[in-house]
Nucleic acid binder design. Structure first.
Lengths: 187, 187
DNA sequence: TCGGTTATATGACGATCGTCATCCTAGAAA
DNA sequence: TTTCTAGGATGACGATCGTCATATAACCGA
């Protein structure tokens, strides 16, 4: 049955948002289109009226997740707060609503052009933002520290989530919070 | 047709090694058992004489890959060399034969107990090794730097692989090489 | 109001997935 | 040598995958 134009746009948006969460939770290959559509309150049939393919949806879902992550980051006024907010245990526990780089990291490199382009733009944006938040040093020095900080954040969150022992996971988060939020922010 | 006991053990080992490469290349869900068995020169039927399930093979394959990575790391006599060897472009380009943490990072957190236990033990071993390679500072300080270094390495390699632009990828590797191989090693 | 358009539902397709039953065969044990 | 056993090949199972054809129904423009 057909729905109104705005309802259709709303449905499409809900599909993207649902897919964005489910991809982060289960990986690109870990969830099927019917599960996504069903979770969005629809059946699988109407999918191809909205998207060209699963890859197409993946690209939109990743872009959506990354944009949400960027919005979240913009709330922080210092690099230290940004790092602390990123490397908290709540973020580590909630993979589905957190950073897509940490949730899908290695999977991204295997995805199509659409997904990877979106990620690349987001990385550039995050680096630029970190450079702006850094106070001291030359532009080149600040960019280097921005790259090291971003790499440390993604790596620490990935390791903290992958590790089986909660104590080690917490230790990684706490140490990285200090190392990348303070040391790099000041020196 | 049946084969000798040693031939069977050799076949089993080849399955693990092949799976270890293919999992790193395509992800746990990106490759099927028949493709693995075929790549190992066998048919898919004999699989369950060797392994209880795909998860079981995944745990062995990850353990094998991590052990290979640890062997590789042991060749380096300083932390700086270890970091440089890890964050080189050759390693970044050869996902199938490289570090399993960077190749399967986010996927690990979604896997069963067998996979995650092996990873946790490997992380512990790598941290201990880094602590040993660090010369200055207290034991607590060295452990903190070891954690930050490992996180930076994994994050940088993950980002360098995921990013679509070769120039940005190279920049991430080069900057992280210096940041985590020199600054942390000395201060 | 009426006809064209379009979002969704239903259902099916070929392919592939993990798993298993069965048979064959040859090594290992007697 | 004979018997037992186990590794591998063959083939099939139910489920699920991405994709698409078709039908339905209601919004939208005329």
């Amino acid at each position: 049955m057909r729905v109104s134009r705005e309802k259709a746009a709303e449905n499409r948006e809900r599909i993207v948002e649902t897919a964005s969460r489910m991809f982060r939770e289960a990986g690109f290959d870990g969830v099927g289109l019917d599960a996504i559509m069903h979770a969005a309150g629809l059946t699988h049939g109407g999918f191809y009226r909205h998207f060209k393919s699963k890859d197409d949806l993946a690209a939109e879902a990743v872009a959506h997740a990354l944009e949400r992550g960027a919005e979240n980051q913009r709330r922080y006024t210092t690099l230290g707060k940004a790092v602390s907010g990123y490397l908290c245990e709540q973020h580590s526990a909630d993979r589905a609503n957190g950073c897509a780089m940490a949730a899908l990291g290695a999977d991204m490199a295997r995805q199509g052009q659409g997904v990877r382009r979106g990620l690349t733009a987001h990385v550039r944006g995050q680096l630029d933002r970190f450079v702006r938040l850094l106070k001291h040093g030359s532009a080149a020095s600040r960019r280097k520290r921005a790259i090291a900080t971003l790499a440390g954040m993604v790596g620490a969150l990935t390791l903290a989530r992958a590790v089986d022992d909660p104590a080690l996971s917490k230790e990684i988060l706490a140490v990285a919070r200090k190392a990348f939020g303070q040391a790099h922010g000041n020196c």
